[in-house]
Design a protein around this nucleic acid. Structure first.
Length: 504
RNA sequence: GAGCCUGUAGCUCAGCCGGUAGAGCAACUGACUUUUAAUCAGUAGGUCAUGGGUUCGAAUCCCAUCGGGCUCACCA
């Protein structure tokens, strides 16, 4: 800003801006305040306390007791009673009542009080007392307008209930709904606890590209964008996996992780947002069994940090996160649920027939592993309410995982299910560059046959593997869904501050 | 992408077998001045999502479009 800007007069509202009568009234008040020499948007304000500090400090203050202690607070006006004599002031910590009486306030301050609206931000200084009705109160000796609000807040009793408005104007949702505030605060605690846990165990936090030239590391359709100077298309990453393993090849750290966004160009649902946050973690010289233990430790740790315990209630269902969690193979779970033993089915065709008989939608191109997965998804997944590690994943659907040490049809991979949702996905990372190339080539064949989500061959990644990736365990945890479980949120949109919506 | 539900005042909601729109809160004017969803009296506020159609007449019935929700498909 140049020096010239300082002398610019305050902008005056125009007629077109004033068409909303409720807003017009507040604009008029704004002008009146300026006319009185009050700056409706001053630069800063020094507080001595937050509301919750005072609640704690004066918890024992007797009803009707007055103190000489002076406190200075700031916040948003949420209610005005008795023509401004009583004001409910809310800050991020809670609520404090303000008493603004002609005996304590200057004429100038009283004139300001008359022009206050619900929603305005003010600062107040004065002695603390507890009213005869038991409400902790500051007798305003001085009152400062900190920001004039030009829009009415939603109704005080029912709040903002409209789901669409809650997501579109999240700030209103946060002002009005304590539950929304608590959900997003708890999300922050989950991420902070996860990060602290990993850092304390010597995992190195890294950042890898969001813009990929080849969208790899998962089976998903990517967003495409374009870089002008390089004149080339780039993809928003669908997973950080291949870059993180390059860092392990480089020996940056034997233990590293990234907590960050992934983007998938797929349908939206109460459990799918186009951008979502995941933890991905790699640990050299570990394998997938180590990742199972680690999953239990991480989830248990963040659950305790966020909720205070290992038992959570989601949609009325009690979920017990106490480790260890059962470890079951995909084939045995399918056998249990359907009586069909996929491990005893020789070829892809018989597996497809079996899956079709179980009611799965089968196109005819599925291989053995895809047929087993379809049967698992249709008949088992939903039932895995309590935490369960599902092992014995088919090699066909796991092009980045090391072959199972006992059964070549399988890989050393597991997914952890809670409430029927995949919460974690992990494997012993495939580090044989020749096998990796063969897996990619098989994916390319599937891709050519029309499988849009088959993973493209990443030559640069295979090159990195040829220099030598140590044996390595890798783990991914979907943070949004984990937070849904820990906050009892019915929709992923509740745990994302600004979920993807069509513009209105 | 498909099916079902949904959109009325700034907010929360009535009204919907057609007859020209209503409450509470918020706002405004006044009263009251130790209140707690303050209270009392009064006032103002609406392209009933949008566009068509049926009808003498549509918030209401029909069609289309746009937003949102849920279920399914895809996926984490």
């Amino acid at each position: 800003m140049s020096a010239d800007d300082i002398s610019h007069p305050a902008p005056t509202p125009t007629a077109s801006e004033g068409e909303d009568p409720l807003r017009r009234v507040r604009l008029d008040k704004l002008e009146t305040l300026r006319g009185m020499g009050v700056d409706p948007y001053p630069v800063s304000f020094s507080r001595s306390h937050q509301a919750a500090d005072l609640d704690r400090y004066y918890a024992e203050l007797a009803v009707g007791a007055e103190t000489e202690d002076r406190a200075c607070v700031a916040g948003r006006i949420r209610a005005i009673r008795n023509s401004g004599m009583f004001i409910d002031l809310h800050d991020a910590s809670g609520k404090i009542q303000i008493f603004s009486h002609k005996d304590f306030l200057s004429a100038e301050n009283l004139a300001v009080v008359r022009l206050l609206d619900i929603g305005d931000l003010i600062g107040v200084e004065g002695p603390v007392r507890r009213t005869p009705r038991g409400e902790l109160t500051i007798n305003a000796a001085a009152l400062t307008l900190l920001a004039k609000s030009l829009r009415p807040l939603p109704e005080k009793y029912h709040g903002l209930a409209d789901i669409e408005l809650r997501y579109r104007q999240r700030y209103l949702d946060l002002i009005m709904n304590p539950h929304s505030r608590e959900t997003l605060r708890r999300r922050s605690r989950v991420v902070a606890a996860m990060r602290a846990y990993l850092l304390s165990r010597d995992y190195l936090e890294v950042e890898t590209p969001m813009l990929h030239t080849i969208p790899g590391g998962a089976a998903a359709r990517p967003f495409v964008t374009h870089h002008n100077a390089l004149d080339m298309d780039l993809y928003l990453r669908i997973a950080p996996e291949l870059h993180l393993k390059r860092l392990v090849v480089g020996g940056l750290s034997d233990k590293l992780f990234e907590i960050n966004r992934c983007f998938r160009n797929e349908g939206l649902s109460p459990r799918h947002n186009p951008e979502f946050t995941s933890l991905e973690l790699y640990e050299a010289y570990a394998d997938y069994t180590g990742m199972m233990n680690l999953t239990e430790e991480i989830v248990g740790h963040v659950a305790e940090a966020a909720t205070g315990g290992l038992r959570v209630s989601y949609g009325g269902t009690e979920i017990d996160l106490t480790p260890p969690w059962p470890r079951r193979t995909m084939a045995e779970l399918v056998l249990e649920a359907t009586g069909v033993d996929f491990l005893a089915l020789a070829g892809a065709a018989t597996a497809r027939d079996a899956a079709r008989h179980l009611g799965c939608a089968i196109s005819g191109n599925e291989n053995w592993g895809q047929a087993l997965e379809a049967a698992f998804a249709a008949r088992v997944e939903d039932r895995l309410i309590q935490p369960t590690h599902v092992t014995g994943f088919p090699r066909d659907i796991s092009p980045l995982a090391k072959a199972d040490r006992d059964d070549p049809r399988l890989v050393e991979r597991f997914e952890t299910y809670i409430y029927g949702w995949e919460i974690a996905n992990a494997f012993s990372e495939l580090n044989d560059p020749l096998d990796q190339r063969a897996r990619f080539e098989a994916q390319m064949v599937a891709r050519a046959a029309g499988d849009e989500e088959a993973q493209p061959l990443d030559e640069d990644y295979v090159l990195a593997l040829e220099y030598g990736l140590p044996p390595c365990g890798g783990l991914g945890i979907g943070i949004d869904r984990l937070v849904m479980l820990l906050t009892d949120s019915p929709s992923i949109r509740d745990v994302i501050a600004f979920p993807t919506l069509r513009p209105r």
